[in-house]
Design a protein around this nucleic acid. Structure first.
Lengths: 229, 229
DNA sequence: CGGGATATTGATTGATTTCAATGTGAGTGG
DNA sequence: CCACTCACATTGAAATCAATCAATATCCCG
């Protein structure tokens, strides 16, 4: 139904890796992906892995955006994170994936066997350290997200979200939102209606402009930052 | 103002460690604490470290309960976790603590220099692996907490909280709550009033009994679990 | 130029917060 | 031993913010 093109790890990837490793990658983990990683193309909304499945592979986003989420039994969805190019995912577990991962947009990924990484970490202290640092990085983002969900108003959540997106993009003035309002709502613990209304409200308050639904200009970052407490 | 008794790491601790390590500790990290850790007594509500301070030490709870939290600029507080005996904390950062840590009750801690641990991890793969596993464990708890804060009603939050507390205690039928209603509120992203009302409501619904304010009997765990979605 | 998905806007409801008052319990000093 | 006090907890009434229900509107794609 939904297509996934896989190119297995091969000499081609290894050659590319040899080139990239000197120019782009500054850590053992990234290098491992470049050297050993196979490539995978996924369509918009395709599932990459499901919560509870055996966590055989670890992934890295090359192109596009990925969301990880959990569902409650009644269908409520909490999106944990949006992953952008360069981000790793599927590392946050032992034997089973704890989230479902889906492509928000058409995306290209690289992936390696988890066992390959853990094996590497046993031999290479730098990789082991990378894994720990990666986990700490994820933990920081989870903690920030927790703060946002626990104690902030709809306006504050949207402001924080926009600033977060701006910070991650290279163009920090106008942000391209690859995800739907529903995705944003489920990331921020709100409804689509509230997200929509809050965008409109911020636009009326001259903090942002909405040239199109998926594009936001942050006219007044100071005002947004103030909302961010 | 608030007292902290410190007993520096010494032969006494090392001897105790030699005994404990064979009986209690099953991992390199725990062993490191037993062998190298100094001991610290803190009074109820005493600060152990503050957000933003240089993260020189890593701690483990021996006795009592500890809370970690962040404050927003306007004073709103989000409690990230309650730590009980056996739990480590202060490991979730690089150079600066990302949370403030305080004693909920009078408590006894052990602590070691972070540099000692990272040095150990460089030499000992088992310790490096422990550090990564610990971080993953924290990440899981953070993710569960995120789900709770993002998408659950007051009743569901309280139910989840009580079940969590019961699971962590050995006596799982009657739970002793070491923290105040305000602590619970700030952990769950609610107000004290809502916490109080919800306790009363659950009592009326015969899901729990409140023999005293700090003691809860879980009469109907199935009902609580159902609320937990 | 449809047509379905996605987004916005409006009206109403409802859960939680806020404001306010009262209750309770543990520790202290008379 | 009791009264007092202070911190903590409960309860009530009103206000508020976001959710829900419902109707358009817009965008993208064939």
């Amino acid at each position: 139904m939904l297509k996934q093109d896989i190119v297995l790890g091969s000499s081609r990837a290894a050659v590319a890796g040899a080139i990239l490793s000197r120019t782009v990658e500054r850590n053992g983990l990234g290098e491992a992906f470049v050297l050993m990683g196979a490539r995978l193309n996924v369509e918009r909304n395709a599932e990459i892995y499901g919560e509870g499945e055996p966590a055989e592979y670890v992934y890295r986003v090359v192109r596009g955006v990925v969301r990880t989420y959990k569902l409650l039994s009644d269908g409520r969805r909490q999106i944990s994170a949006f992953l952008i190019p360069g981000d790793f995912f599927g590392l946050d577990c032992d034997d089973e994936y704890r989230f479902t991962a889906e492509a928000v947009t058409d995306a290209t990924l690289t992936f390696v066997k988890r066992s390959a990484l853990t094996g590497l970490a046993r031999r290479d202290g730098e990789v082991a350290n990378d894994l720990w640092r990666m986990a700490r990085g994820e933990l920081h983002r989870a903690h920030d997200h927790m703060l946002l969900l626990g104690r902030k108003s709809a306006q504050e959540r949207i402001a924080a979200f926009l600033l977060e997106m701006a910070e991650r993009a290279e163009e920090t003035d106008t942000v391209e939102l690859p995800m739907s309002r529903l995705d944003i709502a489920d990331y921020l613990g709100l409804t689509i209606e509230t997200v929509s209304r809050t965008f409109t409200h911020l636009e009326n308050a001259a903090a942002i402009e909405l040239p199109s639904t998926r594009r936001v200009r942050l006219c007044n970052k100071a005002a947004l930052a103030r909302l961010n407490a």
